[in-house]
Design a protein around this nucleic acid. Structure first.
Length: 832
RNA sequence: GCGACCGUGGCGGAAUUGGUAUACGCGCCAGACUUAGGAUCUGGUCCCGCAAGGGGUGUCGGUUCGAGUCCGACCGGUCGCACCA
């Protein structure tokens, strides 16, 4: 090495030194009770896998950490906690695979995660680290369940659920992707089990409306909107032909046995097409099916129902879109036309949505069209393009495909509604039905209640005891936590019952009410319940007599800024919002939106696909950090592109940030006081203070780093080693390269942490130079550049421009037809 | 199929939101220092052209004094949702 190389900067030693000093000094531990400017900087806590954190995780955590450190330099009391989402099927399946117990495996993984998180230089307050598997944590997860149970927001019902035959557990709808288990990609089956549910659907309106008030990434808000799936329409009652229609609010189709059937209620978003409803379809599971089936059809119907039930959800929901169905043999009456129409069952109608029954309008719905074509059912068009003579419209039989458009269409074949636009007709027909007691406007959501039961071992036991005399009894709060008992064989079996049922000493327990022998609930709760409230626990993690201390919570919550992956856009984020609403309604907290500002980071891509364990392309950062140092590695990741875009991981380029830091180190060692500063350097200095601050605040770390590099380049060009500029540079570099900045800061003579310094203020008058270069265009093409004082007027600019030889050349023999002068920006001469 | 987003050098990416396209970095080329260089330093690096100049942000068209940016069509790609009535 030559004398120009800073051979005295050794990342490994320097970083270890500062890790130790931060711990000694408590640098990263804000006073949670006395903080005056609290800033809760949250990142999504990781699931502690056996492999350790990969580069994608590091990218996300560093991105969040940079933000927290920046806010600290702006004078906030930044609380940046971390924890482990360590319950759940992930951990359990891995444990099964390697033949170890998760209780043994998880602490080991956590220790490794902590080592990595410390090594990369996160500003974590380790006093408040938590794991969801710790009884002192899940005690309160169970407590939350009890609050919901008391409030009637938790209930048990037997329901068709998604059953993963590989993981041997129930999955929430959100965990089924295209009919496959999200984790193991096994086709999901339908099973009927008693399950615990949370009434998230009670909160649809609020969950939707509040989205408009949140400072969140648009993509995330859109995803939530789609997931909530609000649609406006009508519920319409179809009478059964020949059956006596009784009373009947449109809502109720379920009638006690042996009473006349009130009718069949359907939900539709297209009441305007009512006159075109030529048949009805019920879901095979619809409760009225048996009673509406004629003896002649009974055998065929029974066979169809059985086939549909055994058909796995892949085939039913995605796989074959081929419609199939069976007529029940009975007829219903179209309330608009009075005509009798056949009733069918078909598995393209789902029991979980709407009323589980539809009016089929083949002319204006693709699915109904396909079904009608297949079974030769009648097709009647009731919409026609506006301003077209209905007679010229192709006949019903000639229709090649369903016409689902509404814009520009008017009603035909619809009695007194003919000529109305589709939008008008939606309102008018619904109102008309309502007046007759045969329908009403209805808003439907796609969202279903949240099934939190899991027939597994590795989770918090649901705190309920079943007693033969008292029924289900909540475990008294004083008896919490219900400890997850250590059992040797925790593997799930095909029974649909949790392995916990095999642990008899645990399973049988006195009933809290009557004292007789009761049985514990053996299901554990969904991991998403653990993670739906962890942000509330962090500030209060040292209290074991309360889940979240009121004063702490008031000071620190809701979370100021949350950064995490968009893969949790609809699951974790929706559940957290729901739970916050419930807790607020129950008076436990005073806010209902947990995350004021949320930003989704991008994904790190390796070899063309997202870095993830399941794709087998993970890169563990440890060796890169060992080779280049954590600071260089952090800068490399943050320099790839905007945080919200992610980037391609490739080794090439990591030496760029290293070289940059080496140059800065050299400057620090050569820093000198005094000396006149070039004007342009002063401008660059102030401009950098401003640009870097704004870019970091907007998570554009790549351009913030570029600005710092430009400042260094400007200093080199000016031959300056000005101590004041260098000190600023170090402060601005600190969020990205914290250990490096501390070392430089100390070298510059400071005895306190660089994070006790403040981000340098900039003088707005100095961020732009007095003299600027303005392009002169002729006909929109740049022909020359002139030096102007900022704020010069058009006449000055024009005079100067006309003095330019190039400009003269182009103006020769031409007249200037128009002058466009944008002050301080450009001069454009349009010639004729 | 529906929805959202995106196409800029050899590569990652900039572009004050309609105003000098390619900042910053990687890579590459040349030179310097060196026993050596996968270190460091200096210079160069969109394309054609000796130059003047011309062309250029996926393609075609439009609006404008001026378009990477706005509008329309197309081509290509990424990510959600997906029989939701």
């Amino acid at each position: 090495m030559t004398d120009t190389v800073p051979d005295n900067y050794r990342p490994e030693q320097v970083e270890a030194k500062w890790r130790a000093r931060w711990a000694e000094r408590g640098t990263n531990q804000p006073d949670l009770d006395r903080a005056t400017r609290p800033f809760y900087n949250l990142m999504m806590f990781p699931y502690p896998s056996a492999e350790g954190l990969h580069v994608g995780n590091m990218f996300a955590f560093t991105g969040s950490d940079v933000y927290g450190r920046f806010k600290r330099l702006q004078g906030y009391d930044v609380f940046e906690p971390i924890g482990y989402d360590a319950f759940g099927i992930h951990s359990e399946n891995y444990a099964i695979k390697v033949g170890l117990h998760p209780a043994e495996l998880i602490p080991r993984n956590i220790a490794n995660f902590r080592r990595q998180l410390e090594r990369v230089g996160g500003m974590f307050d380790w006093r408040h680290a938590l794991s969801t598997t710790d009884p002192s944590y899940y005690k309160w997860t169970q407590w939350i369940f009890l609050q919901l149970l008391k409030a009637g927001k938790a209930y048990k019902k037997k329901a068709a659920v998604n059953w993963c035959p590989f993981d041997k557990t129930v999955l929430a709808n959100e965990q089924v992707e295209g009919g496959l288990c999200e984790r193991c990609k096994t086709p999901v089956e339908q099973r009927f089990l008693e399950q615990w549910f949370f009434r998230i659907t009670d909160y649809c309106d609020r969950l939707l409306a509040n989205l408009d008030t949140l400072d969140w990434s648009d993509t995330t808000r859109t995803a939530q909107r789609n997931w909530l799936g609000r649609s406006e329409g009508a519920e319409i009652l179809f009478a059964v032909a020949g059956g006596r229609t009784v009373g009947a609010s449109a809502a109720s189709t379920a009638q006690p046995p042996n009473r006349p059937i009130a009718g069949i209620s359907v939900f539709t978003t297209r009441p305007d097409t009512l006159f075109g409803a030529t048949f009805m379809v019920l879901a095979p599971e619809h409760p009225l099916v048996t009673r509406l089936t004629t003896p002649a059809q009974a055998a065929a119907v029974a066979a169809y129902i059985e086939a549909a039930a055994s058909k796995d959800l892949v085939a039913r929901k995605v796989g074959d879109r081929d419609k199939s169905g069976v007529p029940l043999g009975t007829m219903a009456v179209n309330p608009a036309t009075g005509r009798e129409i056949p009733i069918w069952i078909a598995d393209y109608v789902l029991m979980e949505y709407g009323t589980g029954a539809i009016m089929a309008v083949p002319a204006h719905d693709e699915r109904d069209f396909a079904f009608a074509r297949k079974y030769g059912l009648e097709i009647v068009r009731v919409l026609s393009p506006e301003r077209v003579d209905p007679a010229s419209v192709p006949g019903n039989a000639a229709l090649a495909a369903a016409e689902t458009e509404t814009a520009g269409y008017v009603l035909v074949n619809s009695g007194k509604f003919d000529g109305r636009t589709a939008e008008e007709a939606k309102r008018l027909i619904t109102a008309d039905l309502a007046a007759q007691g045969k329908g009403k406007p209805v808003v439907q959501f796609r969202l279903h209640d949240w099934c939190i039961s899991r027939q597994r071992y590795w989770g918090p036991p649901i705190p309920v005891i079943y007693c033969d005399s008292c029924g289900p009894v909540p475990v008294p709060e004083k008896d919490l936590p219900v400890i997850l008992p250590p059992i040797e064989d925790f593997r799930p079996d095909d029974s649909g019952i949790s392995p916990l049922a095999r642990h008899e000493e645990w399973y049988y327990v006195p009933c809290p009410t009557c004292g007789r022998r009761g049985r514990r609930e053996t299901d554990v709760s969904d991991t998403f319940l653990d993670s739906a409230w962890y942000y509330l626990r962090y500030p209060s993690s040292e209290f074991d007599d309360r889940p979240f201390d009121p004063a702490r919570t008031k000071k620190w919550c809701p979370v100021t800024t949350y950064i995490g992956g968009n893969e949790h856009a609809v699951l974790h984020l929706l559940y957290s919002r729901f739970l916050a609403m419930v807790l607020k309604d129950l008076g436990h907290i005073d806010f209902e939106e947990p995350f004021t500002r949320f930003r989704a980071h991008g994904l790190i891509v390796k070899d063309g696909s997202k870095m993830s364990k399941s794709r087998g392309n993970v890169v563990i950062p440890d060796e890169y950090i060992a080779q280049w140092g954590a600071d260089t590695f952090r800068m490399y990741l943050m320099f790839l592109g905007p945080l919200q875009d992610g980037g391609d991981f490739r080794e090439a380029g990591i030496n760029g940030p290293r070289r940059f830091l080496d140059r800065v180190w050299l400057m620090v060692t050569e820093a000198e006081d005094g000396g006149e500063l070039q004007k342009s350097l002063v401008v660059r200095w102030h401009a950098t203070r401003k640009k870097a601050a704004e870019d970091i605040d907007g998570l554009r770390y790549n351009t913030a780093i570029a600005a710092l590099m430009e400042l260094v380049n400007a200093m080199k060009e000016a031959g300056s080693r000005d101590r004041a500029i260098i000190a600023d540079l170090i402060v601005m570099l600190a969020p990205f390269a914290p250990h490096f900045a501390e070392e430089c800061w100390e070298r510059l003579g400071h005895t306190t942490s660089v994070f006790d310094a403040r981000w340098p203020a900039w003088d707005e008058g100095l961020v732009v130079s007095e003299e600027i270069e303005v392009p002169v265009q002729i006909g929109g093409k740049t022909r020359a550049k002139i030096q102007l004082l900022r704020g010069s007027d058009e006449a000055t600019a024009l005079a100067l421009a006309k003095g330019e030889p190039t400009v003269q050349k182009f103006l020769e023999g031409k007249t200037i037809r128009k002058i466009i002068y944008v002050q301080d920006r450009l001069l454009n001469l349009v010639i004729g």
